[in-house]
Design a protein around this nucleic acid. Structure first.
Lengths: 116, 116
DNA sequence: TTCATGAGCAACCTCCTAGTTGCTCGTTTT
DNA sequence: AAAACGAGCAACTAGGAGGTTGCTCATGAA
């Protein structure tokens, strides 16, 4: 478990979320929900160009499985909203991982300067 | 194109990178390269538990295609190193996208407080 | 009440992906 | 020189992912 600040993200937990974000349609859906807040399925269908309603539903289910979105049905249609914690967690994971990289670069720089 | 600061990341460009990071083996490889710097294939094979050398090579090629790593051959073995720009770009993309979310929350909060 | 709309479920198809094995080639090492 | 090691290439396989169609159901609007 890699503890980085208040959001503890382990590697095996992050991969499925990246995988979920790895499809252009799903990424567009997440981006849309970030921008415009809770939306019904039909509205999110516009994110997927030429994909059927069932196709979009499948994508939404994938996002739901990894906890990136949640939904409840209000009457006839289903409202989808973002679960920001997961997004923040994976963002922080990338931040943490690239911080390690920066640290390595810094060490290398210091080493070279010492040597010179 | 979604311009966020100095790294301009568009949505369709980010998806393949997320996809590449979406496999646990590949994510482990990237994390390893972040931590320990350039490494030969054989060393990175340890990141993939029980996967053959060719399997690992395939993963590395996927990472190379999306520009997350690059390599060159030194004598008998091939050295792999991280290309941090892509990692930083996708990190910033997530930062930008979740900032939009925060902004929406803030607007909502302000609206509720005004209404009360 | 009737009809249109949004959604759920199940079956199906196709293609890509992760993984394998087998072989060859060049480079170290002994 | 011979053996061992890292790597590249090609063919193949199993399974999952993305997508579809067809049908049914409930709800909201005419």
């Amino acid at each position: 478990m890699l503890n980085c600040g208040d959001s503890a993200v382990n590697l095996s937990g992050a991969a499925p979320i990246f995988s979920a974000l790895g499809d252009p349609v799903r990424l567009a859906i997440v981006a849309r929900l970030c921008k415009d807040g809770p939306l019904p399925t039909i509205e999110l269908k516009q994110c997927a160009d030429g994909v059927s309603r069932q196709g979009v539903t499948k994508h939404l289910q994938v996002l739901e499985e990894v906890g990136l979105v949640e939904s409840d049905r209000t009457g006839r249609d289903r409202q989808w909203r973002l679960q920001a914690q997961q997004l923040v967690a994976v963002r922080d994971y990338l931040g943490w991982i690239s911080a390690q990289w920066d640290q390595r670069l810094e060490l290398l720089r210091a080493f070279v300067e010492d040597d010179a």
